[in-house]
Structure formats: structure tokens, C-alpha cells
Design a protein around this nucleic acid. Sequence first.
DNA 1: GCTCTGCAGAGAGGA
Length: 997
Amino acid sequence: MEQKSEVPKPKKFSHEKNKGIPEHVILASGVHNRYWVLDVQDVTSSQSCTEKHLTITCSKTTQSREACILKDGWESTPVAVGDVVHLEGRCVSGLWTIDRDSGFLVLLPDLLISGTSIASSIRCMRRGVLGEMFKAFDGGSKQMLNGTIVHDIFQKAAMSSDFSPERIQTFAAEALRSPNYLGQMYSLKLTQADMRQEVEEYLPSLSEWAKHYVHTSPQAGQKQLTLKLPSDGALSKQDATCSMTVTDFVDIEENIWCPRFGLKGKIDVTAGVRIHRRGRRPTERIVPLELKTGKESNSIEHRSQVILYTLMSSARRCDPEAGFLVYLKTGSLHPVVGNHMDRRELVKIRNSLAHHIGNSLVKVDGRSQMAPLPAIESDKQACKYCPQKRNCALKCIIEHLSHVHLQYFSDWLLLCTLEALTMENKGGRRNIWLQTAQQREKSGGCVGNMQLDRDVSVLSDGVYKHSFVRKEGNQTLTGLIVGDRIVVSDQDSVLIGLATGYVTEITISGLTCSLDKNLSKFSSNTVFRLDQDEGAGGLIFLNCFGTFFTKDTVANILKGLNKPQKQAMKKVLLSKDYTLIVGMPGTGKTTTICTLVRILHACGFSVLLTSYTHSAVDNILLKLNRFKIGFLRLGRAQKVHHDILPFTEESCRAKGIQTLEELEQLYNKELIVATTCMGVKHPIFSRRRFDFCIVDEASQISQPVCLGPLFYAQRFVLVGDHQQLPPIVQNAEARTLGMDESLFKRLEHHSDAVVQLNVQYRMNSAIMSLSNALMYEGQLECGSERTANAVLQLPSRAQVEKELDLYVCQPQYSAWVQAALEPNSPVCFLDTSEVPAPETVEKSGISNHTEAILVQALVTLLLKAGCRASDIGVIAPYRQQLKAISSLLQGDAFKALEVNTVDKYQGRDKSIIIVSFVRSNPEDNLGELLQDWRRLNVAITRAKHKLLMLGSAPTLRRYAPLEKLLCHLQQEDMISFTSGKKRPLPNIFFLFSFSDQ
DNA sequence: GCTCTGCAGAGAGGA
């Protein structure tokens, strides 16, 4: 993937980027300033020093401009026109000066970079950049796990202010049987005894450390340390000798997102300390302690980490100026002072890293490509143990990768990077600190003004249940829904990212959630904001380019299947590598998969069962469960279907798993393991392999995600239908470059691996014929006479028609209603063009009010005619239209009725489907959604007995797929007009009064 | 031009 030097180095993108400030960029002045760089000049000053002069603005109109001079080393900052920067220091009448002694320039400050990332970039920038691009997949080591556990023990002791050997023993024993660490031991093939031995070596020095430094100990504060704080000014060396005692443990694992310096990180221990120096009054500070279990190296990397933590702390509270490295192997303490020089150099390294990460793409001739990585360091020593060495020199090291494979890798790297960028610009975490809670609440995805309600309760190790209520009464909470991931910050966005977790319950006045930190230490007056967390965005780029034949049973299982389904079974069993099952709409994909799993299970094969969504996975499991087939379901309990909960790892563990053997047993017990494609980070996959992997809804999954689970199986089966919707890709360029091609589609032309399910049991023959004409070229068949001839049952239809006659004296006005209700014409397109029914285009989306009213009318009539609300589904391509329709369908009678987007209806069906196509305008204003054949195909294949479509035929004819559909409908005489000659209103009013009765 | 699901994740040592 290394781009060679032929690739032109990106010059200044001034002409490219200067076209105006993009909409998603937010600028500000003040402490949390954000400036847009308008111009960059390299200047040689009178003392023949080079400087960089920036012209900057913090207003989007670019009217008020300021200047910034970078010198004394800052001039080498890789800042370019169109970058966003944050400035620290002094500004005198519109001129910032960043020099040796004061000021910082933080490049792309909303790109938060972790302390460890910066520390690892000190020796090699390329390593830091690669580390941000690829999360290592190495799985860790015994030493690392030991480190984590010893940290945990120290932190628990700190929080309980008890470092007695007995207490520490208890914490150690708890940690050694905690679920999380057992999982890691399983991955690393370590035993609990191994781990116990490793951990126990450290325990005495924990108590020892506390004896010397915690203020409750009589021996505290006797050890001499060397500490010279910046605020001391010039002092003699003698004066720098001091002693330190910890007076208070303020926090553990304090999570800091620091957008002033563009940093993030977790501080092991935040402690209140008292520093005693000879001849001075003791000073009190709150400082970061960084724990280390490895060698007492006092290395640049370790010290840099501490200095960065002091900088992050300074943005939250009084500048600690110093922090401490605690080496737990020996129990010794090293003070680390963060003077301006060190901080300056680290911020520069951060900027360099941010520059590379923030400019990972360059445009060449209008097309995006990956920017070159920083140069390779030729330090053999450093490279030898570098965790990124495989990614660093991919081409050289992995010789078995052919050109095609490398090309595939680099293509997808580009696509994923493009997509990540778009997702970051759209949502992204930076809105938490760039927008006030009120601003963000308007656009949804945030609730502010929240206060802690009841006491915090512990749900499990590291999971805390919190209840919040609105400070001002009962304003309804609209922004969040149950299951959302959230980030908790203080209302004023000073303490950002205090905790993360999930919404578990929403009431009228408040909300309950599970969080990773206990916030009870905040006073009951503290006001919080809860922001929906879209996550860091982008796809994880999975870095892993690394028989009992019980004939009777199988025969029995095969019995209920139709011919193509049987063929599918045979194909899978005989396959060497993979099989694709093309399941057309209603052909029983879930049943087929369920049967396939039962057969494979009966044959003694192990199966990894996956799909993109939790609900798709659970759909199959619900069916499987009826046959009493055992399985293990991995994944967050909150996302799993209620009836499947007993089979989750979490509930199995709750029955009591304390030893590694029990955990191994749980992981190995079932032949069938089910999870989502993204769930493959689970420890089980570091060891278990499967005979088969089945991926459901595979045509909706992007390639990198779909590949994930396939690495753990000998053979795989992809089930999907490429005539249905493809994976969602937000970035337009990535889409045109083919990112929405699923693996299913890519492999589909290998026709010998494909088997088609074309016998369907959903639609009656009239509805089926639409899809056959449009997409399947007549291949789709009805499974039985019963399916083919099934029509809508309307017990009270006669009564309704009688009333219609009574209320509408002119029959031509109610003709279309009669057509819509007629069970024997299952397909009916209602052309609204003569009504007319124009669309409404708003920022929030597109809707069509008249169509919404017509939907309401139809639903009302259908219910009146004896239809159950749960048998009716309303579909529209646009969210805004769903809102319009739902607001008209309020009330208990409509409760069971489902209103949803086309996309959400995929994989589902209803007896009656009403589709509102929305678009209706005289211009050539089309939009993308309805241009997609597959979306239309999904929309028209959801109904079992009756398909009602509403739309303006003249507008819709401008969309190629709809033109074809309308042509077919016309031939079949399936179109009727919603009114006679431009007089629809009496009808509509009539319907209103009718529904109000 | 308006369709949306998944993800914890920063740091745990080694030289």
C-alpha cells in the first residue's frame, strides 16, 4: 500500500480548499477558539530567521481577520490553507505570536489524539500514523494482561483507600475470576494459575508503595524525590528536593477528551497530593499518576505520557505542572515535570500526527487517493519490535499476497477512508464540544439540563445504573431512544466524555442508562448533557489478511422443503469453499437457513451463524429454538431478542462462571455459535474455528464487514438477493467507486456456486407478477395454489360501500375508493396527478401532505371494512413522509399499524401494503432514492394480498424503474385516478367526516 | 440530496 514517490506530493491545496468554508465546519473565538486558515506565508525575518505567517478568521463570513506568527520552531508546523486550528497564548490587537516561550498552535484540534499514540510517534511518525489507521489485531500478551489486572487492583485499593495486604489479596482474587480477564486468558491460552502467579509477584509492592506515599501511613512522606516545578523559577538544585504524600484519590481511569489541545486519554489515577519542600510551606495539587508494571525505564515515552496528562488536566482544573510515574514492580515513584518546552515539543508531534491523519486522502485529478505515509525510519532496533511492522512494509513482508490481493486491499482502504471521512463530517463527536446542549437538542441526538436522580447502583463490574431527570420539569425527551449509545458530559462542556454507556429506559420526565463510570461523586446540583454517540465513525478495517451421518434425521429434516430449497442443501453440503443462496422475495430464506443449520448440526458440523443486524440473527435463532437446537448467542444482551436472552453468553455466565475451565466449556459446548459480523472481535474467535459460516442478508453487507466472520470457517454460505437493497454508503465518491458492492454480488457471477430460491409463499400471483416483470424475468413462482390465489378478506366491505353510496352521491368521485377496496384486484396504483398532490421539500426531508391524507383515508376505510390494523403496513421512501403520515394516524385504532421506510421493511411482509411515493413536481427534481431499482423492488414485494400505491404518475414516469412499472400497470389496467375531473376535495372531506364518526 | 446499522477503547508491556 505504500505509495511510491512518483505520486506527486500534495502542494498547498489553496485553490482546492479555498472555495469557501464547508457547512460542517464550526468556528469560534474565546478560550475554545477555532480559526480557519485563509493564507500561509513563509517569511524570513530581519534576524534571518524563518517564520510562518498565517491569516486566520473565526467567522464563517471571513470578514474579521486576524494574524498569527509562528516562529522558533513552530514555523515547521504542517499547517495549510483550509485547516482549522486552535490557538493558545496571547493575542494583541488581532495578532497572535506563537514562539519559544509561549503559546501553542493546535492543528485540527477536533481530531483528538491519545497520549499513547503521541508517545509512540516520538521515535517514528509512521508508526503513530499506522497505529491510528489499523487497530492492531495481535491479541496482546501475558505481560499486557498482567499489566491490566495489576492496574485494576491498584485502582480498586486506591478507591477504597485500603492498601492492606489482605484487601489487596481479595481484589486480586476477584480480578482473576472476572469475566473480562477470563476471556483474555482464554484468548492467550493462559491458565488462571499462570496468571495468579504473575500477578502475585506485584502485590507486596503495592502495599509497600502505599506505606511510603499514602498520608494515612505513619511512614508517608519520608522518601526524597527530585522535583523542580516551572513556577519555581530559577532555584538551586538543593531546593528541588522534596517529598510527597497522597492525601486523596480523586478518580481512577479518568477519561479526558480535551479539544483545547486536541488530546484524549485515560488517567490511571488522579490524586490529591501534598508536596513538602524544605523551607517552604507545603503545596497541594491534583496530579496524574501513571502506573507501570514493566521495567523501571523512566523512558521518554513514559514521561511524555505523564506530561500530556498534566496538559489535559490543566484544561479541567488548576494546572498540576507535574505528574508521577509509579513503577509497581519496585514500588518506586518518579516525578515528571511538564515544563513549557516539553509540552511544546509534544504538541508539535501531535500536530504532525494530526496532519497525517487529517490529510489521509489527497485529490489528484479530481479523484481521491491515499496520501503517502510518513517516511520509513531506518532504525533497526526500533523496527524490530514495532507492532506495526507488518502494515508498515506490507508489500515487502507478505510475499504470498499477489498483486490482485494487494490491489483489493488498497482499493478497500481508500473506500473505507472516504466513508469514514463523510461519517465524521456528518455527525461525529466534536458536536459535543462545538455545540451547546440547546443547539444540539434542536437537531436531535442530545438531551441537556439533566440531573442525577436516585442513587447509582452497580449492575456488574464496571457497569453502573444511573437515573437522570430534567432540571426544569417535564419537557419531553425527544432526542434519544432506548438502546442508543450515549456520552455524558457536564452541561457547559468543560468535563467532556465523563462516561459512556447505553440508554436503558425512557420515561416522561427522565431517563435511565448504564454507564461505564460511577458519577455519584458529582453533587446533586451538577447539570449534565447526554449526547447520542455515533462513535468514531467509519468501518473497522479488519486487519486479518491472515462424520456422523445420521441419514434418517437428515431425510426427516429435508421433508418439508421444496425443490430449490433441497438443491440448496445439497449444494452447500457438497461445496468445497462457498455457496451463494439467492433468495428472491418471500422464498423462505429464514426457513432455508434454519433447515440448513439443522442438517449441518445433525451431521456434526460446527456452524458460525451471522448477519449484519442483531434482529436478522435472532430471526433465525427464534426459528431454530423451536427445534430445540442448542446454540450460543454472542453480543450485548440489550440488543438481543427477549426470547433469545437465555442463550446469550451473559446469561450463561450469570449462572456462575468463575474459572477458566467453565468458560472454555461454555465456549466449546455448542456446535452453533451466532453473532453479528461486527461481533468477531470476541475472544472466542481467537481459538475456535467452524466448519461452516452462514451469512444472512449478505447482499446488504459491505465487503470488509462480511469478510470478518469468514476467516473463522472452512466453508461459507452467503444468503441474500442482489435485487434488494445494497449496503449503505454515505460517501458519494466511495459509492461510485463501488463500495456498495457486497461480497455476495461480487461472487455471484461464479454461477456454479449459486443456487436460486425462486419458489415463494408470500405474494399472490398478481402482486408477484410485478416483480417478475420488473426484476426477475419471470423466474419467480408461487409455491402453491393457495399462495397464488389468496386475496384480502374484508368482512364488512358491503356495509362500507353502502355508506359510501349514501355519502357520495356522484359515483365517479368514489370509483377510485371502490377500486382500492376490491379484493379481487390485488394491485392498484392510485394516480394523484389530477388532484393535484404536490410534494413539499424542506431541510429535514421531502413529504407530500395530500398523499398522507389519502393514506389516512385508505387506512380508515380498510379498518372500517374489517381489516386488522396489524395487517396493514404503510411504506414511504422518505422519513419526513412517515412523520406526516404518522401524525395523521394517531389514536388507539391505528396503534398496531406499522409505518416505515422502504429500507426498514426489507425482509418483512404484511397482508396489505400502502406505498406512498411522495415525489410530485413539475421540475426535473428527482433525487437518488427512487432511481434505485432495488428500492422499488423491495417496496412492491412486501404485500401478501393487496398492494396499494399512491403517487403522481407523470412525475414518477421520469424515474426509469417506475416508468417500467407504470407501463406494466397500464397494460394490466391496474391504474385508477384518485378523482374525476380535478375535484378531489369533496372526497377528502367526506373521508374525514367518515373517519370522525 | 435526504435511505442508516454496527461498533468500547486507550493503553496493557517488550526492547
